[in-house]
Design a protein around this nucleic acid. Structure first.
Lengths: 168, 168
DNA sequence: AAGCAATATTTGAAGCTTAAAATAACTTCG
DNA sequence: CGAAGTTATTTTAAGCTTCAAATATTGCTT
């Protein structure tokens, strides 16, 4: 029922037949659908409720966890987006008064980014509601479901990283 | 250990304390990280190996499953992207000879999009490799892990749709 | 200390993405 | 039939995103 190969001819055909990976593909597509679905809803609510984009919210979320500020490179790694992307994102949030950018004293190449008081205040208000939205969206899962899913996603992350050659 | 509420004072504090939803938030962030990680790797490989973007690949994948073609609205719903987005995406793939676009005879508002022979041939070559990449990325999961994950993601999808008011 | 490799960031070009407004064609209901 | 509402698509403006090339600064090696 779940793509179990019928053992007919297994020995004669096994070598020449390309392996069937449709199950993994379906799993990946479902993972992607799930994420896209939730992400879209969060994006919509952030805009309707606070007139803010998801990337800006994510950026502020990172900074809120780092009171001492972060460099663009730090942010880039954490958020898994390109450096060039962050340059523009930070630029707009500095312009709107949510972020503060200054050159690091220790390393004049680096820019240290911090939340301003305004940025922190607005983020906290948004984050509180946001947390509620997420809880709502996952209401259909039992506590055990959530734990299982958490564990399996952790395993998936490790698997993916291993397959992409993570060690360097 | 996993955010189990300590039952101290549960009865007196339960009402006035705002609920704690950090576990759901962590689950969501992990889901997002997982997807972003894999998506980025797939995007990179598609570009390095075939010089194609992920959105183009996704679009062709939808069309490959619909030999009779699909309208922009169909595609828009399936791919969960805006109509305007598809207009441009299709435009570029028509220009490169991968897609064919024609006005529907039944409904002159609708555009029917199909893969050309070139498009189908190129997609098949890409899809074969792509399937292998996905399988690699999920190698660290046992068959049972995969089944469990599939089931839990299905449940998550339903939960999310329910929370966003799916019925209309 | 001079040169060279590595690191941090910015810039530029192209493409992706969305929301909202505009256009066009169909359907319905009186 | 014809007005009014609905559906399919395109257009527009703004922002996001990436990669690759350019710039600036640091650290290392001789």
């Amino acid at each position: 029922m779940t793509g179990q190969a019928i053992p007919l001819d297994a020995e004669t055909k096994a070598v020449e037949m390309p392996e069937d990976h449709r199950d993994e593909l379906r799993l990946w597509l479902r993972l992607l659908t799930c994420t896209t679905l939730i992400e879209g809803e969060v994006r919509r609510r952030l805009r309707d409720r606070f007139d803010v984009t998801l990337p800006r919210f994510d950026l502020m979320a990172q900074l809120e966890k780092a009171p001492g500020g972060m460099t663009l490179s730090d942010l880039s790694k954490r958020m898994m987006v390109s450096n060039g992307n962050l340059t523009g994102l930070v630029e707009r949030l500095v312009a709107s008064g949510h972020l503060d950018r200054r050159t690091s004293k220790a390393d004049r190449r680096a820019q240290v980014i911090r939340l301003t008081d305004l940025g922190r205040a607005e983020f906290k208000a948004m984050a509180a509601e946001h947390e509620g939205w997420i809880a709502d969206l996952f209401t259909g899962l039992t506590r055990k479901d959530q734990d299982d899913l958490m564990r399996l996603l952790g395993k998936t992350k490790l698997s993916a990283r291993a397959a992409m050659g993570d060690t360097p």
